[in-house]
């Protein structure tokens, strides 16, 4: 299990002490997000619903590619980069 970088969107950086990039450990997207939440508990409500599921309006990308349909189960490796993409609908 190596270091994976998670890029934090600007509107969530207030929950990561204004850090744009957080380094985490994990072998899946889910483990990486859990490690992110462990470091910054405020991120939990930004990412997960009360029953622990990733919000539907969030896409996680691994090295620029959507992790769908595996999402949390998608394997990751050292050096991978995750992005949190919010689905937006305003116009």
């Amino acid at each position: 299990m190596g270091i994976i970088k998670i890029n934090i969107p600007a509107y969530m950086q207030s929950f990561t002490n204004n850090m744009e990039v957080v380094e985490v450990n994990g072998s899946t997207v889910g483990e990486c997000l859990n490690h992110l939440v462990k470091q910054f508990p405020g991120m939990k409500k930004q990412l997960f619903s009360k029953n622990g599921n990733l919000f539907e309006n969030i896409i996680i990308s691994v090295n620029g590619e959507s992790a769908y349909p595996e999402q949390l189960a998608k394997p990751v490796k050292e050096g991978d980069e995750l992005n949190i993409v919010l689905i937006v609908g305003g116009g």
Binding site: N7, A10, S61, G64, E65, S66, N83, V85
Partner: peptide, 15 residues
């Protein structure tokens, strides 16, 4: 295309 206007960064989600 993902435009983050606050940091003025453009990234892409490959689909």
């Amino acid at each position: 295309l993902i435009c983050d206007g606050l940091n003025l960064k453009f990234t892409e989600l490959k689909v």
